[in-house]
């Protein structure tokens, strides 16, 4: 961001100054006017709510306009950290995140590596089809999978029966529900990730790979030593994205399909915030848990960003 940018040319600033002089305005007014619509909106709906949530996290309140929030200091935080429910939700958040990584990073990388061989004109068709889940609304995805996985009449269980396997209660069984939600979340993203890896791979100089082959490198070695290191930025990007947003992507599936159940098996921190906020109306707990989550995010994001920057520097 500090490199010389086209727009930074001196003439631009002179121009800004002269325009301001004509209108007899201080130099900062025009830029401020250009930034105002965006930042006023962000301030009202993101920055201020974040500070307000921080304030509310020190109060006890039930969201009713007729009641006054009561200041309780750090009680909300103390209570939350002692709460088994929160620890279970935090653990599930980790399960969601780690469970998604194979679907958003591992498997797509593997498929992209194994399909590097040209598939000719069919490639465009595959690309168009594989991408489709990305543009389907999450609620539709949830409703359709609910039908497919229905214990009695869903086609998946009909197929299992036809194979002589017992029917599964995918979303109703506490042991399988979280994995089912992870699968559904990943189903929407696996194609996109694969295409992203494939796109990164087509940017690799083919002469590099040719040279390695002439030197006698096997396909596995080419993949491991050349392709994987060169697409590291994409791998890191998708990993950071999954860790930051993965558990959040599953929110809609949890809310539509299981409401956190059965027996809290599928709840995570995002869903817990939602429950505290809008079904039990424990505003202090919801906002305090939100602050803890945000703090955890900031720490992880700092690591993620520095990893990305380090990598950029290597890639030159």
């Amino acid at each position: 961001m500090t490199q010389a940018l086209p727009f930074e040319a001196r003439i631009e600033r002179d121009d800004a100054r002269s325009a301001a002089r004509q209108l007899r305005l201080p130099g900062w007014v025009v830029p401020a006017l250009f930034l105002a619509p965006a930042f006023a909106t962000l301030a009202a709906w993101i920055y201020w709510p974040l500070l307000e949530a921080l304030r509310l996290s020190f109060y006890e309140w039930n969201l009713l306009p007729t009641t006054e929030p009561v200041f309780v200091g750090l009680d909300n935080y103390r209570n939350l950290l002692a709460l088994a429910e929160l620890r279970a939700a935090a653990w599930n958040t980790v399960v969601y995140t780690l469970g998604l990584l194979p679907l958003t990073v591992g498997l797509p990388l593997l498929i992209a590596l194994m399909t590097r061989e040209a598939v000719g004109r069919a490639g465009a068709v595959y690309r168009a089809i594989i991408f489709v889940p990305m543009i389907i609304a999450p609620v539709v995805v949830a409703v359709v999978w609910r039908w497919l996985l229905n214990p009695n009449h869903g086609i998946v269980n009909k197929l299992l029966e036809a194979l002589g396997l017992p029917a599964m209660r995918f979303l109703q069984d506490a042991d399988t529900a979280i994995w089912t939600i992870i699968f559904i979340t990943g189903w929407k993203l696996v194609g996109f990730s694969t295409l992203l890896f494939a796109a990164a791979m087509t940017n690799i100089e083919s002469s590099l790979i040719e040279a390695a082959r002439i030197d006698g490198a096997s396909e596995g070695q080419v993949a491991r030593r050349i392709v994987v290191p060169l697409i590291a930025p994409t791998t890191i990007f998708l990993t950071v994205l999954t860790v930051l947003h993965g558990a959040q992507w599953s929110f809609v599936y949890i809310n539509v399909l299981t409401q956190g159940g059965p027996r809290n098996a599928t709840t995570n921190l995002y869903y817990l915030l939602w429950e505290y906020g809008f079904s039990t109306f424990a505003i202090g707990w919801s906002t305090a848990a939100g602050m803890l989550l945000f703090a955890a995010f900031a720490v992880f994001a700092a690591f993620g960003l520095s990893a990305m920057q380090r990598n950029d520097r290597h890639a030159g």
């Binding site: 993101i46 709510p49 959040q248 505003i283 939100g290 945000f294």
Partner: peptide, 24 residues
């Protein structure tokens, strides 16, 4: 500084700011 502030929005889950947003 303002530009840096923009990137911060990436780190703020909707569920964290939902209560004040709802009240507004």
């Amino acid at each position: 500084a303002l530009f840096a502030l923009l990137t911060v929005t990436w780190l703020i889950p909707a569920q964290v700011v939902m209560v004040p947003g709802y009240l507004l």
